[in-house]
Amino acid sequence: MSAGTVADWLGAACLVAGGLLSLAAGIGVLRFPDVLDRMHAATKPQVLGVLLLLAGVALRLRTTSDIGMIVLVAVFQLATAPVAAQMVGRAAYRSGRVDRSLLDVDELAEER
């Protein structure tokens, strides 16, 4: 089996795993009861899902310019997803759209 075939199979596995994680993230966003919980789903499995999809694409394409672009997408995905989630979470919290009954402790409320 040539190195190209191995890379193709690895890429396929990465694509399937990334797709499944993105699906789980989507289910989480749909099912979680609250904005803050939903943001958890929108950051962790979503980011890893995208990273795995990118790895799969990179393993399939295998050209320098494509890999450069893919690395760039990955870096910006890692840098921006937490910021976006934080902006949404903070906006939801400050406008009182967080379900307090789901929280055991809220030290942010105690500060204000």
């Binding site: 993230a25 979680f32 499995p45 789901l102 929280l103 055991d104």
Partner: peptide
Amino acid sequence: VARVAVQPGYLPRGA
């Protein structure tokens, strides 16, 4: 998070 998301009937608590 994926496991919590797909677990049927499970409502996670937060803090």
